[in-house]
């Protein structure tokens, strides 16, 4: 003990203190993000064709009296806002995972064709079987998303070099075109189907009730939970297959599970709100500045930012051409498309 006491004391601020400091900042950032998200949720309940005041919202939620205003809030605004929040979160997390899985900064469920596959399956089901309930919608969305994922993987892997980032994007673009034109073809053949899902197909969180929301919520919940559990393993995948395997990661298993998570999240998002683009692509890049590259931070940040962003986009879609409304997918495309071009110029090597 005496000997130990005479030893020089360690430097007052060892480098590990730096990472503790960074982690504290990230935790604070996450708190601020949650507050922002909550603020946007309130704003989403307040704003729209008829602007309401906060007191009415409070009463509608906790002292419901059946008035028109209260009905607007509980049957229109609240489900719509919650759908925007969860769909935004699910798409952003799915995008972040897709980027990690493929080690490709341009990847996202909509870019690689998963959203288009899910959408085609939902439209096809409506075309063949008439309007089905959302319970069945979601399973068609999963099926379509899975088939699209397999197709893009096979298509992109053709050739000697395997699945390069560029080939993945090209295969995704080609597949998206093909699936979208099939979807359009079906809609032209059936006026009835077109009327039912025209707005949905552009990506919209409007016109869905609570039952629709709650029927899809469990799949999203499971997807988000498994994503968080796998976050450490996904970080390791970003170091490359050989490094990850060398560190003892069962890469095939992690990749398969993560792919299922992406399909769950993207499929349930499409079933709820149609194929909304660019959220999955853009949000992970936006939050990387604060969250770094560790998926244990990146995924929670992406979920919160994705929810916030889609809430904001939906508020914009409601008030920009008031009293008319735009589908929210058009809002995200207006913001997302230039960002995609920027990323393609900056980040894609070869």
């Amino acid at each position: 003990m005496k000997h130990a006491a005479t030893k020089p004391s360690p430097p007052s601020a060892p480098p590990s203190a730096h990472s503790a400091h960074v982690n504290l900042l990230r935790l604070i950032g996450l708190g601020i993000g949650i507050l922002l998200l909550f603020g946007c949720l309130i704003a989403s309940l307040l704003l729209g064709a008829a602007d309401l005041d906060p007191r009415t919202i409070w009463q509608a939620l906790f002292a419901f009296d059946g008035s028109t205003e209260h009905l607007i809030i509980t049957t229109v605004r609240l489900p719509r806002s919650l759908i925007a929040l969860t769909v935004g979160a699910a798409l952003a997390v799915a995008g972040a995972i897709t980027q990690g899985l493929t080690r490709n900064p341009l990847a996202a469920p909509d870019i690689v064709g998963i959203n288009a596959g899910a959408a085609l399956a939902v439209v096809g089901a409506t075309f063949l079987f008439g309007s089905a309930s959302s319970h069945t919608y979601v399973w068609f969305a999963f099926l379509g998303g899975t088939l699209a994922a397999i197709a893009v993987y096979v298509l992109g892997s053709i050739g000697r070099s395997g699945l390069t980032p560029l080939k993945l994007i090209l295969a995704g673009a080609a597949l998206t075109y093909l699936l979208s034109s099939l979807t359009t073809g079906m809609l032209i053949l059936s006026q009835r189907t077109l009327d039912e899902i025209r707005f949905w197909l552009a990506g919209s969180v409007a016109g869905r009730d609570f039952a629709t929301f709650t029927s899809v919520l469990p799949y999203m919940g499971i997807g988000l939970l498994v994503a968080l559990i796998l976050s450490r393993q996904i970080t390791m995948l970003t170091l490359g297959d050989d490094v990850a395997k060398g560190l003892g990661l069962r890469t095939a298993w992690v990749k398969a599970t993560a792919t299922v998570v992406v399909i769950l999240l993207a499929g349930s998002s499409v079933a709820l709100a149609g194929p909304i683009g660019f959220v999955g692509l853009v949000v992970p890049h936006l939050v990387r500045f604060f969250a770094g590259v560790d998926y244990r931070w990146l995924l929670p940040y992406a979920a919160i930012a994705g929810g916030t962003l889609l809430l904001l986009a939906d508020i914009g879609a409601r008030i920009i051409i008031k009293p008319q409304e735009l589908p929210v997918g058009i809002m995200t495309a207006i913001v997302g498309a230039p960002f995609f071009i920027y990323l393609a110029k900056q980040k894609v090597k070869r």
């Binding site: 480098p15 590990s16 990472s19 080690r103 970003t238 170091l239 490359g240 050989d242 490094v243 060398g246 990387r288 770094g292 590259v293 560790d294």
Partner: peptide
Amino acid sequence: LPQSPTAPEGLTVRE
């Protein structure tokens, strides 16, 4: 240690 491994942009040495 594989040949010329690559890390995602922004990953710190400690991470």
